[in-house]
Amino acid sequence: MIEVRNLCKHYGARKAVDDISFTVNDGEIVGFLGPNGAGKTTTIRILTCYHPATSGSARVAGFDVLSQSMQVRRNVGYLPETVPLYPEMRVREFLRFRGKLRGLSRADRESCIARVVERCWLREVVDRPISQLSKGYRQRVGLADALLHNPRVLILDEPTVGLDPTQIRETRSLIRELTRDHTVILSSHILPEVEATCGRIVIINRGRLVASGTPQELRSRRGDGAVHAEVRAPVEEALSAVRELANGAKVTAEAADGWTRLRVESTSDLREPIFRLSTQRGWTLRELRRDAGSLEDFFVRIVADAQLQAQQ
């Protein structure tokens, strides 16, 4: 659905996007993650035909963003970072205007407006001027505009920035619902957001793609999950028994008021084997827990690594 090949965008000598390639399949929801100024918005603007790339190519919905710009624009719903709204217009007026720009006929327009108003919970504000709306409502009006023509591809730049927690949750569930009919790219610098909504994550930093995969893949690549167990057993015995189970992974043990705390640094889930071991040996098991390693740590490390590389 979206195919990006060796995309570069230079502003003078500064490389905002530096050789990025990725693909997004039909019906996928992909999160574009990176610190502020990483090149997310620039990439998105190239995909939405707002500005052309310096080199490389991108196809959206089967059309080239440079040579078939109009077809791309017709098939894309775009929510920019600063939602482009005319404050003096009423919500319904604004949506009608956008419908006309997209060439919807009068009958289509009204039914499309009714649909997006319903979907984006705008019914109470549809006849209010946009200047009177709160940030959250404005964001929803922008989203309604992006959905208006039922596009195949939805591109959302920081869709939840500036919303309160309830609104963030609502927007996320709305976006998840949308994947049934649309392919979605959303950008964010907030990791939990991407983790909660996206099937796949593309991490970029300083204009370069540094990692991509499902949240699980990225987590396992991080390689520092751990299993914690607390058993009533002699330290030496517990240590050697668990080492056998752990298959060469690093195991540490310490004694504390008659209990032995074990920590196995392994990405594989050793909870069940440890439970069986302790029942076999007749140890009392007080705690058994696994740290999967948060994606947040992974993200921070990847960004830090890239920064380090850049400095060298």
Binding site: M70, R73, P80, P84, L85, Y86, L101
Partner: peptide
């Protein structure tokens, strides 16, 4: 100034 130009230039109009 309002950034609405982004909405215009990404709409299917020349």
């Amino acid at each position: 100034r309002n950034g609405t130009i982004e909405g215009m230039m990404t709409a299917p109009i020349s």
